[in-house]
Design a protein around this nucleic acid. Structure first.
Length: 387
DNA sequence: AAGTCGGGGCC
DNA sequence: GGCCCAGACTT
């Protein structure tokens, strides 16, 4: 029963793709390993709809692996801004340089070698090898895990190594015999998981479409489709708050480069205080403390190693501006924005500070909520006349 | 094996 | 609001 399924799976899936697969995605029409690689990295944990807009833009700006490798990391991060998981952008840049130095500018076709490159794990290596080189290498992303767990009724917790190993073995076993089928097969797997064997509303539960595997799928036969694959219970993400300084001189704002190994690593943001655990039951505590904050106190919070600006009235209380809530995968953050005007664009010591015109924000990689905040600022009339 | 990394679409 | 996603990497 299971053997018949394994034997005919690839053919049936490719046949399904011929009728109901996704078409016209910009990265489907390319076989240039560089173009394939960029699309695979960009699509990691990122929706197709999002990548649809950003992929052509990225390829236009960095059309070859040489152009990408030669570009400043800051430019790559700026282009990546808004996509999240910024380690991907750093690894992308590092990987481009690896490909040039270690492989003469050409991506290797062996998935074992691909996996040794920065930011390329086993699944992405398999996808690149399959799409760009027709290698018989499996992928195992969330789509494939879900499909296999359901088809074969795998009930073990998905995070366990033994279960993961079992899934990889299955993925390998199911590959089509012919290498020339690898691109369409791999695409079909992703499409089937993304559009038919979905997490919440699989077509087998709706009744309007007929799943080609309905009669063989263990989860379907035992009415366990929505229960597989089993996932771990996630703890509630902790909450934090912090203060951020929006220091403005005319149409320029002070930006600070964030450390690489952190949230929003390597992006340009506003100077911020350390994150404090949010005290839920003392909602009034932080509010009260904020109302009478002076410029001097604020600067000590967000720029502890800098001298207070002489151009400010240090002891004058400043009023809190907007508070922004931002949800990450593992944290929730409340950012208290403090608007302060400076009579001059006083330089700060250190290369991680920069005064940036509001007109030039697009050239910098900013965290999405900060970008939205700064874009919402109104320009002063003086600069409006100038520009 | 668990934690760390964003952001948007969807329900 | 929680869940989900073309995962990789560190601890």
């Amino acid at each position: 029963m299971s053997e018949a399924l394994i034997k005919h799976f690839a053919k049936k899936l490719i046949a399904w793709h011929g009728l109901d697969g996704r078409r016209g995605l910009p990265w489907q029409s390319v076989r240039d390993p560089y173009a394939v690689w960029v699309s695979e990295i960009m699509l990691q944990q990122t929706q197709v709809a999002t990548v649809l807009e950003r992929y052509p833009r990225f390829m236009k700006r960095f059309p070859t692996v040489n152009k990408l490798a030669a570009a400043p990391l800051d430019d790559v991060l700026a282009e990546w801004a808004g996509l999240g998981y910024y380690t991907r952008a750093r690894n992308l840049h590092a990987c481009a340089n690896q490909v040039i130095k270690e492989f003469g500018g050409n991506f290797p076709r062996d998935p074992i070698l691909l996996e040794q490159l920065k930011g390329i794990g086993r699944s992405t290596a398999g996808a690149i090898a399959a799409f760009a080189f027709h290698e018989r290498a499996p992928i195992l992303d969330a789509n494939v895990k879900r499909i296999l767990a359901r088809l074969f009724g795998i009930e073990g917790a998905i995070q366990e190594k033994s279960v993961n190993d079992q899934l990889w073995l299955l993925a390998q076993e199911l590959l089509p015999k012919s290498p020339t089928d690898m691109p369409v097969y791999t695409q079909a797997l992703m499409d089937f998981g993304a559009t038919w064997c979905t997490s919440r509303k699989p077509v087998c539960m709706s009744g309007t479409k007929k799943c080609p595997f309905a009669k063989a799928c263990q989860a379907n036969l035992s009415d366990q489709v929505l229960l597989l694959p089993r996932k771990p219970i996630k703890a509630k993400s902790p909450e934090f708050d912090c203060d951020m300084l929006l220091l403005r001189h005319g149409n320029s704002v002070l930006l600070q480069k964030r450390p690489e190994k952190a949230i929003w690593g390597g992006l340009w943001s506003l100077p911020e205080s350390v994150w404090r655990a949010k005290e839920k039951n003392l909602a009034s505590h932080s509010e009260k403390a904020k109302v009478n904050l002076t410029a001097k106190e604020l600067f000590k919070l967000v720029l502890p190693n800098q001298k207070t600006l002489t151009t400010l009235k240090a002891s004058e209380p400043i009023k809190p501006g907007s508070e922004i809530k931002h949800v990450f995968t593992h944290r929730r953050l409340w950012m208290q924005i403090w608007h302060v005007s400076s009579s001059s664009a006083t330089p700060f010591s250190g290369a991680d500070f920069k005064w940036v015109s509001l007109h030039q924000l697009g050239k910098y990689g900013l965290p999405q909520p900060i970008k939205v905040l700064l874009q919402g600022l109104s320009l002063t009339r003086d600069d409006d006349l100038k520009n």
